[in-house]
């Protein structure tokens, strides 16, 4: 499964997922109004310390900031050019610390555990007569569809290239959608053929549990 999870057994990996999520929310809310350079510097240093305590390769995970580098630079420049550069520094410090803390939770929590931790949020679905199983099933379906979509697109691109010589075109999006939607219909039928998203009401004791 594609995931940002960094396998390991550090103290942060061992904390329960739900506790980590709550701590993150509390810290984020507390840090948001802070404008003091020294407090934020200390927070940033603590965060980096936490990363390095993850063990080998821990500190490398700070790379999560890289795709946001340009954006952070622009924000700093906008502050520096039109106002106070010190304000820019504080803003970047705060954003960086918050992003890194959130990322710390992500890389030390398996997707399964994260899912498990937030499942209670879906309990209200059953009041509406919907199965709380549905979000989990939907997540699995997305993970199954994404690679299939990419392969539908690449075979379509090949067919296009074989007759046009051109590599790709936005005009492929329409036919791509038609083919991909037909594929989704097949999956919907397959789901219904095996009892649908809700499953069968009662537990079937004649079949469960499976033993050798």
């Amino acid at each position: 499964m594609i995931s940002l999870y960094l396998p390991g057994a550090s103290w942060c990996h061992r904390l329960p997922a739900r506790l980590k999520l709550i701590l993150l929310a509390v810290v984020s809310m507390a840090v948001f109004p802070v404008q003091d350079f020294w407090i934020l510097s200390a927070l940033l240093a603590l965060t980096l310390l936490a990363y390095s305590s993850l063990g080998k390769g821990g500190l490398q995970q700070v790379k999560a900031l890289r795709p946001m580098g340009a954006m952070l630079a622009i924000i700093f420049l906008l502050h520096a050019v039109t106002g106070d550069w010190r304000e820019g520094v504080v803003t970047i410090e705060r954003l960086t610390a918050l992003i890194l803390l959130a990322n710390l939770v992500t890389i030390t929590t398996r997707m399964d555990d994260m899912m498990e931790a937030v499942m209670p949020l879906f309990a209200p679905l059953s009041w509406l007569g919907l199965s709380p199983r549905k979000p989990a099933l939907a997540v699995t379906l997305v993970l199954r569809f994404a690679p299939v979509l990419l392969s539908v697109y690449s075979s379509l691109r090949e067919a296009y290239q074989s007759r046009s010589g051109k590599r790709t075109s936005w005009r492929l999006m329409g036919p791509f959608m038609l083919q991909a939607l037909a594929m989704a219909d097949n999956v919907a039928e397959a789901l219904t053929a095996r009892g649908g998203a809700e499953g069968f009401g009662a537990r079937d004791t004649s079949v469960l549990p499976v033993r050798n």
């Binding site: 549905k134 099933l137 939907a138 379906l141 991909a180």
Partner: peptide, 13 residues
């Protein structure tokens, strides 16, 4: 089922 699959489909898209 079809609605659920369609929702997952556009998320995957």
């Amino acid at each position: 089922d079809r609605t659920l699959v369609q929702i997952a489909f556009y998320a995957a898209l």
